[in-house]
């Protein structure tokens, strides 16, 4: 009765075959330990930072000039020359930082993989470099360059360059692991050099994903450029910080709301574009 074709019950086994369904396995020790661990960690950390719902509600309902500013934001700042210039600077920072960072990211991603860099020693050097760049957050890059280069858009550009480099390199090298090795073999068998092989056999395969990552990176940079401005790296963030430090909440919120709208519109556009790519 074990030799019957799949899906056809042999005559002697008239009993309901579903009865032979094995007992459902219980949760593994790994699942139990990790679930317990997650719950314990959450409770312990919530206590450590003094989180309580009463405190949250009490703080939010207390009269607060900052929150009042949010209720009547002052949009007149958009038409002031300095704020408009800051907005444009933010867009420029995002575009330039993305283009520069993503251009360097492509070779770095290729050189960090076995197919793009057969030399084990050089490959590990590129990987270590990529890991270091990735470990530093955008705000820290901005702080580094503001102290090294000075306050202004150049620091912001450098910060976004390294941030884009980190993001696009990581995402692209993950895609490189899954390419079809056939064309690589064909290029090598034709006597192509390493760079020629990468350009003709590898890059065409990853180009749609790579373009999508570059656009996604642009969205990240747009948001990031507001944050890094808070530490003096140029753009709209610097303007927001200006009003914040003077306690002019209506003007500050006006800029924040406008920035929010700009980001939403550009993201919607970028997401549509990315969908068509992959």
């Amino acid at each position: 009765m074990t030799s019957g074709p799949v899906g056809v019950a042999s005559p002697e086994s008239r009993v309901d075959g579903a009865a032979r369904l094995p007992k459902k396995p219980g949760p593994t020790p790994f699942t139990i330990v990790t679930t317990l661990g997650a719950v314990v960690m959450t409770v312990v950390t919530a206590r450590a930072v003094g989180f309580s719902f009463e405190g949250l509600i009490e703080n939010l309902t207390r009269p607060n000039s900052v929150v009042e500013g949010l209720l009547n934001p002052d949009f007149s700042q958009i038409w002031s020359e300095r704020s408009r210039a800051a907005f444009i600077e933010t867009l420029q920072l995002a575009v330039l930082g993305t283009v520069a960072g993503a251009s360097v990211a492509l070779p770095l991603a290729l050189w960090s993989t076995r197919v793009g860099n057969p030399n084990t020693f050089l490959r590990s050097i590129v990987r270590i470099f990529n890991n270091i760049v990735r470990a530093i957050p955008d705000l820290l890059w901005a702080l580094i360059f503001v102290s090294a280069v000075g306050i202004g858009a150049l620091s912001g550009l450098l910060a976004l360059f390294f941030f884009s480099l980190a993001v696009t390199t990581k995402l692209t090298s993950d895609v490189l692991d899954g390419i079809d090795p056939g064309p690589v073999e064909a290029a090598n068998a034709s006597g192509a050099g390493l760079t020629q092989m990468l350009r003709t056999a590898v890059v065409p395969q990853i180009l749609p994903s790579y373009s999508s990552f570059v656009l996604y990176n642009f969205e990240l940079n747009l948001r990031s450029s507001a944050v890094i401005g808070l530490v003096g790296a140029g753009g709209i963030g610097e303007r927001i910080e200006f009003f914040r430090s003077r306690g002019e909440w209506e003007e500050m919120w006006g800029l924040v709301v406008m920035f929010f709208l700009v980001v939403m519109i550009i993201e919607a556009f970028s997401v549509t574009l990315r969908r068509r790519l992959v």
Binding site: D180, G182, P183, E185, A186, N188, A189, S190, G191, A192, G193, T200, A201, P204, Q205, L207, P208
Partner: peptide
């Protein structure tokens, strides 16, 4: 080796074409 390979063409079972181009 590259010079040699340029004189020897190769055809594969799985064609090994770049599908996207």
């Amino acid at each position: 080796m590259r010079d040699l390979r340029s004189e020897v063409g190769m055809i594969f079972q799985g064609f090994n074409l770049v599908d996207r181009t």
